[in-house]
């Protein structure tokens, strides 16, 4: 038996919005540690690695590890039937061919449940080694969304150049070119508004803006995003999943393969 109850159900709705445009289907691997999902997009350019920690749920029961194969568009549609302030419970029997979602209103005067068929998925996992990245850039998630959106006007790719002076995002195309430079924040009252660069080595890499724009769908989960880069390895973009109190409930990480010279 698997059962997980999340009082701040809107977090699960936001998690689904952050992955449904990138992935068609994926397995939720449920264990005593929590619910994990790792899947690549169909072209194998980007990967999502997502964790919802068991102690982030108000109730969490997982008698034995199970893998729930899910059509993510279907799950997203069902979660749209939950109100933003609903409590969401996910339930699946061992060896079941369906998963149940229960939505309770805060006053418990409206309870709905939806059963969804599970899929048999042949999932392919990638081993991602723990990496010491040459640069880790932390910035407001809204700022990163804006940069990716604005530079998409100019081209398909962004060059991210991280040096000790700050970070420069550049794009060029038929109509011209654009650059956005962010300096490290000197004094910031609010931590979530800071730009912080932790750099061991300067790095310049090129990435597809189309995929970065998919990743920014996770911005509602977190006020900050971190970009971790090293030469000639995929970019890692991480949004921490925090509840209203700011406690960590897990993360959404995206990996994106760089573009290289032909």
């Amino acid at each position: 038996m698997f059962e997980a109850r999340l009082v701040e159900g809107s977090l699960l709705k936001k998690v689904m919005e952050s992955i449904k445009d990138l992935l068609n289907e994926a397995s939720w691997d449920c264990s005593g540690n929590g619910m994990c999902l790792q899947a690549m997009d169909s072209s194998h350019v980007a990967l999502v690695s997502l964790m919802l920690k068991s102690d982030g749920f108000e109730n969490y029961r997982c008698d034995r590890s199970i893998s729930l194969g899910i059509n993510l568009a279907s799950m997203s549609k069902i979660l749209k039937c939950a109100s933003n302030d609903d409590i969401i419970t996910i339930r699946a029997e061992d060896d079941a061919d369906a998963i149940t979602f229960m939505f309770e209103s805060p006053k418990q005067d409206r309870v709905s449940d939806y059963e969804m068929k599970l899929m048999n998925l042949d999932t392919e996992h990638l081993g991602i080694p723990d990496t010491e990245y040459a640069c880790v850039i932390k910035m407001p998630s809204g700022e990163f969304s804006r940069i990716c959106r604005d530079l998409s006007v100019l081209g398909d790719s962004v060059i991210i150049c991280c040096t000790k002076d700050g970070v420069r995002f550049s794009a060029k195309g038929d109509l011209g070119n654009g650059n956005i430079k962010l300096a490290q924040s000197a004094n910031v009252d609010k931590e979530e508004e800071a730009v912080v660069v932790d750099m061991r080595e300067a790095v310049t890499l090129t990435f597809s803006l189309r995929y970065l724009n998919f990743f920014t769908k996770a911005a509602p989960l977190s006020s900050q995003v971190s970009l971790s880069m090293s030469e000639d390895v995929p970019l890692m973009v991480e949004y921490k999943i925090n509840d209203k109190e700011g406690d960590s409930k897990g993360y959404v990480r995206y990996y994106l393969a760089p573009k290289i010279e032909d």
Binding site: M40, V45, L126, A257, D262
Partner: peptide
């Protein structure tokens, strides 16, 4: 520029 894929960097498990 050429788009690489993740399997050029990470091994399948």
């Amino acid at each position: 520029m050429e788009q690489t894929v993740l399997t050029q960097f990470y091994l399948r498990q």
